[in-house]
């Protein structure tokens, strides 16, 4: 009996993992086709639990090239309260964010890179709320 419960638990866990993975892949597809006059380069998937005390975030290292106008498009998954806040930094300097000073969000942020190098893209959820989101990195067509 115990063995049966374990097997069922594993199956249910696998199914929920598959479901979550399929959902995030669908969100990537939808988000990537809505980037406008830009060409897809890569995507970043973020899913974080709620945490009031210390809002968690995920960091991605990205190499950006001189002379390219990059676009970071944010798409939030349905069914979560959290809205994604992205930040692009170079060393200690914050270069840009999708969070406006009035607390509202930009769907996308552009970055005209004039220095090839390693940058950090940080993604968390406003107020430490639980959230899931996809960030599409693309370059703007000239």
């Amino acid at each position: 009996m115990k063995k049966l419960v374990s097997i069922i638990s594993v199956i249910l866990l696998s199914l929920s993992f598959y479901h979550a993975s399929a959902q995030s892949d669908d969100l990537v597809n939808v988000c990537a086709l809505g980037i406008g006059n830009a060409t897809y380069l890569k995507d970043f998937k973020v899913k974080l639990p709620a945490s009031v005390a210390n809002a968690p975030s995920t960091k991605f290292n990205v190499i950006l090239n001189k002379g390219t106008l990059y676009k970071f498009t944010v798409c939030n998954a349905e069914g979560y309260e959290g809205k994604a806040v992205i930040k692009l930094t170079e060393g200690p300097n914050v270069l840009g964010t999708n969070l406006k000073p009035d607390g509202s969000f930009q769907d996308a942020v552009g970055f005209q890179c004039n220095k090839t190098g390693m940058y950090i893209l940080t993604c968390g959820f406003k107020g430490g709320k639980e959230g899931a989101a996809v960030v599409i990195m693309s370059y703007m067509n000239k």
Binding site: L95, G110, Q112, C113, N114, K115
Partner: peptide, 26 residues
């Protein structure tokens, strides 16, 4: 060799999208 000159980034809005322009030189 690759050299850099530091500059201050600036922000502008184009067609409703915020664009950060890096003014560093490489």
């Amino acid at each position: 060799s690759v050299r850099y000159e530091a500059g201050e980034p600036e922000a502008k809005e184009v067609d409703g999208m915020l664009i950060i322009i890096q003014n560093d030189k490489q």
